[in-house]
Simulated scan of single mutants.
Amino acid sequence: MKAIACAILISATAVLPALAQDISAGERSWNKCRACHQTGEGAKNLVGPQLNGLFGRHSGSVEGYSYSAANKNSGISWDEATFAEYIKDPKAKIPGTKMIFAGIKNEQEIKDLTAFLKQFGQDGKKL
């Protein structure tokens, strides 16, 4: 019985690193976003809004950015699950959004990008 329990524990431990979020991989994924968005201290709105402090924020609420009515009226508060659904297909999640992006379909890449974004507070400083 101990041998089986030990084998299960070893198998579970081997799988866990694959599920972990990788900020470095998320930063590489961020290169897909950088043409339209900024993060970090001094981030500005570009074609898209700056993404500092994204998680916990309401959609359409970055000051100085001109959002589509669909985005402003979506009622979305950004959390990991909502962001994951959105980034896979922005126009499916918010019909009428002006964000033109094919989406990221890979679950691990989305987790890594999420980890990268979550490190920036509203002021752009790393938490």
Score class of each variant (00 low, 15 high):
K91T: 04
I94E: 00
V62C: 01
T82N: 00
D22Q: 09
G48H: 04
Y86V: 07
Q21H: 11
S24C: 07
G53A: 14
N106G: 02
K105S: 11
Y65W: 06
D123A: 15
Y86G: 00
A5C: 15
L113W: 06
R34V: 15
C33G: 03
A18P: 04
E80C: 04
A70P: 00
R28P: 01
S74L: 05
R34F: 14
K91N: 03
S11P: 00
I10N: 05
M1W: 05
K32P: 00
G124Q: 13
L9Y: 06
R28E: 03
A12C: 15
D123E: 12
A70W: 03
A18L: 13
G56N: 09
I4K: 03
R28V: 03
F101D: 02
A84D: 02
F120V: 11
L127F: 07
T114N: 08
T13I: 15
A35E: 13
I94L: 04
E41A: 12
G40I: 11
W30F: 11
K88E: 13
G124D: 08
L16Y: 10
I100W: 07
E80R: 04
I110V: 14
L46F: 10
D22F: 11
G64M: 05
N71D: 02
N106R: 14
Q122L: 12
A102R: 10
T82F: 05
S66Q: 11
V15Q: 12
I8R: 03
I94F: 05
N52W: 09
C36V: 15
A5F: 11
I76E: 04
K105E: 13
N31S: 15
K105A: 07
L9C: 07
Y65K: 02
I100F: 06
A18I: 05
W30V: 11
S29G: 10
A35L: 14
D112W: 13
E63K: 01
R28W: 13
A115R: 06
L117Y: 09
N45D: 09
F116E: 04
P17N: 04
L127D: 12
S74R: 10
E80V: 06
G26R: 07
L117D: 04
H37Q: 09
H37K: 10
I104T: 07
A3M: 08
A25T: 06
G53V: 08
A25G: 03
S68G: 05
I4V: 14
L19K: 12
A70F: 08
V47I: 14
R28F: 09
I23T: 12
G40R: 00
A69R: 07
W30A: 09
C36N: 09
L51A: 03
C6H: 06
F116V: 08
D123G: 11
M1S: 12
I23G: 02
R57N: 06
A3L: 15
A18G: 12
T97G: 02
S77L: 08
P17W: 08
F83K: 02
T97C: 06
N71H: 09
G124C: 08
M1T: 13
S74E: 10
L9F: 02
S29R: 15
N52L: 10
C33P: 07
S11D: 05
G121H: 09
E80F: 02
N106D: 14
Y86I: 07
P49E: 15
K32I: 15
R34C: 10
M99I: 06
